[in-house]
Design a protein around this nucleic acid. Sequence first.
DNA 1: CGTCACATTGATGCCTCTCAAAGCTTGTGG
DNA 2: CCACAAGCTTTGAGAGGCATCAATGTGACG
Lengths: 188, 188
Amino acid sequence: MGGLAATTLRLAAGAALFRQGARTLGLFRVLSGRVRLVRLTPGGTEVPMHTAVAGELFAEASIFSAHYHCDAIALQDCEILVYPKAELTRHLLEKPEMLWAFTAEMARRTQDLRTRLEVRQIRAAPDRVLQFLRLRCDADGNWSPPGTLKQWAQELGLTHEALYRALATLEREGKIQRADRLLRLVTP
Amino acid sequence: MGGLAATTLRLAAGAALFRQGARTLGLFRVLSGRVRLVRLTPGGTEVPMHTAVAGELFAEASIFSAHYHCDAIALQDCEILVYPKAELTRHLLEKPEMLWAFTAEMARRTQDLRTRLEVRQIRAAPDRVLQFLRLRCDADGNWSPPGTLKQWAQELGLTHEALYRALATLEREGKIQRADRLLRLVTP
DNA sequence: CGTCACATTGATGCCTCTCAAAGCTTGTGG
DNA sequence: CCACAAGCTTTGAGAGGCATCAATGTGACG
């Protein structure tokens, strides 16, 4: 964001940058670490909506809302850049090509959310994991979860036990291979 | 969309406006009827991403993509307005306030998708239905499903049997009241 | 070396999916 | 006006799988 004033702040692992219902300050860029956006169901379970990694912008939708609809929780120690809402708004309105890029980013978020929804519709845990891997792995079928398996399990909407078992099953069936943290998809 | 060329077309109930993977034409407005955007899981189940009602714009994300990521299926007989992609792009870039409104609409979509994700995380069918109603009902706690209960069940990510049973359970427990198509939420 | 969180496996129960069958509603054609 | 067909609605029975609770192993870090 060339020439846009911004302040940085630090966030310890597990700390909240903002909570659902809080007034929106603006939006954020992750400089280092990872931040997860989660909603809480009435039952109290956390539903991850997005995980922003280093370099990434997040909480875009908050520009158009007076209050946040999610909690933002640091998964690790983080450095965060803050773009104040008012300035950012002015900035975007003055430079249409910037706004265009911003809109394109939001479109990508939409696609990502739709993919999440699609994956969550698959009930069988092994199939859900498999589909997730298919969508995320590189050309060689490799992928590594960024963070713990427990965190990944939340992302998938499974208990961690279910994920462990699913991975064990898939490996037993020869559909994936595991080497330390690396997962390889064995394509038929 | 003032002054933007557009053509209209008709769509019979059940017909597809476009399919996943097809080249993007542009975007659409529903003049009458209802159109559902669905993705297909590898297992073949349809996952509804959005249901556009009369007056609503849909397939916005397609402006930034060469191919559609969803199927668009008419739930009823429909009239659809088509905005060609190239013209629309030019139009949006020339009028920043138009682009701003467009972006705001995308932000709303994002929130809607997140709500969907949140509701789907609730496993127990009665609780899921209840939460859906809480989010959708009016001030008096009333809501009516637009369309059949089967369609609603898909929207909820439940089998229609599970939905019928959940509604029966909720009514038996006095948490909702049913009168023909109308549902009333009994708040404690 | 002790603590704490993650990783893994076991046993149990509940709930949704699946398959099946029977009322009910709507529309169509004779 | 009635008979039939087709699709929605509703309820039943059975099974499989994930959540839950529980216990143990393992790794990192002070």
